[in-house]
Amino acid sequence: MVEDDGVAPSLDENQLSELVQHLQTEEEASRLSTLQSVESFNLWITNHPALRQMVIVESVSKIGPAILRFLRALFGLDRGAPDASEAGDATQDDRRP
């Protein structure tokens, strides 16, 4: 159970349960997409004309999901998602409720 720190309004049990359920669903979906992508990466690397001969390929294939996170870090892509104000630019959406 999550304790309220008294700063924000508390959620009732039903709301909290609904939130946690969605959180778990999203997390599981994220895990599945990572696994699928790792499989895809291994497929690419083991069929790559230059890489498939190299010893490193075997090691990379054994690393698993961490390899994608490592590559993201290496490419400088792990700097966090855009903040809500960027992601939710209502003017771009041309939202007309």
């Binding site: 959620l11 709301q15 998602a81």
Partner: peptide, 22 residues
């Protein structure tokens, strides 16, 4: 997947009934 720029944390960050601690 490498270019993916979001996570479930971004969704959670918009749940206004939660404090930072929660």
């Amino acid at each position: 997947e490498i270019l993916k720029a979001f996570s479930v944390r971004d969704w959670l960050a918009q749940a206004k009934g939660l404090s930072q601690k929660q």
